[in-house]
Amino acid sequence: MLTYTSRRLGLTLLVLVTVSIITFALMRLAGDPAVAIAGAEASAEEIARVRADYGFDRPLVLQYAGWLKDVAQGDLGFSNILQRPVVDVVAERLPVTLRLALAALAIALVLAIPLGILAAIRRNSSVDRLALSFAVVGQALPNFFFSLLMILVFGVYLRWLPISGDATWQHYVLPAIALGYASTPAIMRLTRAGMIEVLDSDYIRTARAMGLGTRRVIFRHALRNALIPVVSLTAVQLGFMLSGSIIVESVFSMNGLGRLGWQSIQRTDLEMMQALVLIVSVSYLALTFLADVLNAWLDPRIRVS
Rank of each mutant, 00 (worst) to 15 (best):
E249M: 05
N124P: 05
I47G: 04
Q274H: 10
P85H: 00
M254V: 11
F145V: 15
V90G: 01
P95T: 01
A182C: 12
V15S: 10
M1I: 13
L233F: 11
L109C: 08
D32H: 07
L238W: 01
I247E: 04
G213K: 15
G31M: 05
S20L: 11
F146P: 01
A48G: 06
A44H: 11
P229G: 07
S6F: 14
G258Y: 03
V50H: 04
L2F: 12
S245I: 02
R303Y: 10
G213R: 11
A209F: 05
R208T: 06
L62Y: 12
P185G: 07
I21V: 11
G239C: 01
L94P: 01
G239R: 00
G39P: 01
L174W: 01
A72H: 02
L199G: 00
L76P: 00
T184N: 15
A48Q: 10
F252D: 02
K69Y: 14
V230M: 09
M27N: 14
N143S: 15
P185L: 07
G66I: 02
L242I: 13
L287H: 04
F289Y: 13
D292A: 09
L278F: 07
T18K: 13
V50D: 07
A286N: 10
A44N: 15
R303H: 08
M1H: 14
